[in-house]
Simulated assay, not measured.
Amino acid sequence: MELYFLGTNAGVPSLQRNVTSVALRLLEERGTIWLFDCGEGTQHQILRSPLKLSKLEYIFVTHMHGDHIFGLPGLLSSRGAQGAATKVTVFGPVGIQSFLQTALTLSQSRVNYPLDIVEHDGGVLLEDGTFKVEAARLEHRVDSYGYRITEKDRPGSLDLDQLQALGLKPGPLYGRLKRGESVELREGEMLHPSQVLLAPKKGRIVTILGDTRPCENVVPLAQDADVLLHEATFMHELADTAAEYFHSTSTQAAEAALQANARQLLLTHFSSRYKDVEHLQPLLEEAKAVFPDTKLAEDFALFPVTRRE
């Protein structure tokens, strides 16, 4: 599980940063990628990245502002032109269906693979054997949502030393035990998975927030998250400006991470007034003063999501 950034700027692109988009790479867990927002130029960013559109499974849109959605029609049509055939589902606020259907229809774009568009107003969006995705409304000029992605706990590894002590060699029985099946050692003697499986691997939690100023749903969405991705449009000296435009400062993002007991905070969605990484350092420093494990997102940066010990 890894986060790969395709755009970290707010509002409009700059020479240093594209507008918002981030991919959650789940190649080991599902063999797919999930995309969160798709600003203009996202497909160009993907061409310069190791990501493959053929692996795209879900797209989650936080809100309907152009710097988060203008790249969607082009990306979806290009995916079909590249020969991808697997289904893609787009989740987003009310309006996303009309926007995409209008853009694709009037441009006569062909999407020759299954495409579902699901509008929502929060709640549990999907849940299967590996992941659960929930959404809740934030506080922005339009309906904006944050997404909480929870990986289900996975069975622990086999205790190889114990298995060898029991005289079991690697083979089909190992697979059955790993799948939770009991096996017969000798006539009438059963070995149960609980006897030879180590502690379960705790599932990871990633929280990705759309544009927002501080509000009550931020902390529940980010509670105990392994990674919290939070906008930091301005330094805290511009807190009044941030509030006026329904955005957050780097200090406010750090305060949210602290209150939510997150493990790591990634800052993104930077105002164009901060032109390069050097100009972003003050935002990082003031966030780290509140929440030390904070990092700046950069275009084409990869952040692994590690498991808790």
Rank of each mutant, 00 (worst) to 15 (best):
P282H: 10
R17I: 02
D161E: 12
H236T: 04
L177C: 03
T32V: 14
K87L: 12
E29K: 01
V90Q: 02
P73T: 04
A135M: 00
L266A: 04
G66F: 10
R263Y: 09
I149Y: 00
D143S: 15
R204S: 06
E244F: 14
R273P: 04
G129W: 08
K132G: 03
V12P: 11
D161G: 13
S194Y: 14
L173Q: 11
L115S: 07
H269C: 10
G95P: 00
F36A: 03
L166G: 07
T212K: 02
T89M: 04
D240G: 11
L56E: 02
A254C: 09
L6K: 03
Q259V: 11
R307P: 06
A254L: 08
H140N: 15
L198Y: 10
E231Y: 09
D116R: 12
V290T: 10
T105C: 12
A23D: 06
V277A: 15
Y58Q: 02
V142S: 13
T8G: 02
L24G: 01
E216D: 11
R179F: 09
A165H: 09
P73K: 05
I149Q: 01
L75S: 05
P214D: 07
K295I: 11
T102L: 13
P304C: 05
V218P: 01
E151M: 06
R25K: 13
D121A: 13
D159K: 07
I69A: 01
L126Q: 02
R176I: 06
L26C: 02
T207E: 03
H230S: 15
C215N: 05
M64N: 09
N112M: 07
L191A: 08
K201E: 15
L75N: 05
L15F: 13
Q82T: 13
R179Q: 14
V142R: 14
R213S: 08
T150Y: 12
P214H: 03
G122P: 00
G92D: 03
E286I: 09
A239G: 06
H44Y: 15
E151V: 00
Y174D: 07
P73G: 06
S77M: 10
R25H: 05
G39L: 01
V118L: 12
F131D: 00
A225T: 05
V227E: 06
L100A: 02
E244P: 00
V22D: 03
E29A: 10
I208K: 00
P193E: 06
V133Y: 05
H269L: 10
F36M: 08
V206P: 01
V118R: 13
K178D: 07
E29R: 05
K201A: 11
S250P: 01
P93H: 06
V196G: 03
M1D: 05
R176K: 14
Q264Y: 05
L296E: 08
A23I: 05
A262H: 03
A136S: 11
H192T: 15
L197R: 11
S77Q: 11
D293C: 11
Q252W: 01
E285K: 15
L104A: 05
